[in-house]
């Protein structure tokens, strides 16, 4: 059994973000680059929107994620 304090610490270490419409539980203090690593998304041919704003590829590392963030990760697929 975790103590109340330990649970509080855990809760502070955890945040929830929405990635491509699904909720994800993540460690606090991770940036976009680390998110892509965790989700095993290739970083080459994707584009990312963080809370409705496009984040340039070169700035993935600089964008620290916060609880409640909404992230869209898109790629090119077959289409006419």
């Amino acid at each position: 059994m975790q103590s109340v304090n330990a649970r509080r610490v855990n809760r502070e270490r955890i945040m929830h973000v929405t990635v491509n419409g699904n909720s994800h539980e993540l460690d606090n203090n991770i940036n976009l680059y680390q998110l892509l690593e965790q989700l095993k998304v290739g970083k080459g041919r994707v584009a990312i929107e963080l809370n409705g704003k496009i984040v340039p590829k070169s700035q993935f590392c600089q964008h620290q994620l916060s609880n409640g963030d909404t992230i869209e990760i898109v790629q090119a697929i077959g289409g006419g």
């Binding site: 290739g42 584009a47 990760i73 898109v74 790629q75 697929i77 289409g79």
Partner: peptide, 21 residues
């Protein structure tokens, strides 16, 4: 050649080639 822009399928093997590869 035209392409569509869609969400990345999370959980998909990142080693798999994508259309632009």
């Amino acid at each position: 050649i035209t392409v569509a822009i869609r969400r990345v399928n999370l959980g998909q093997n990142s080693e798999e080639p994508s259309l632009l590869d």
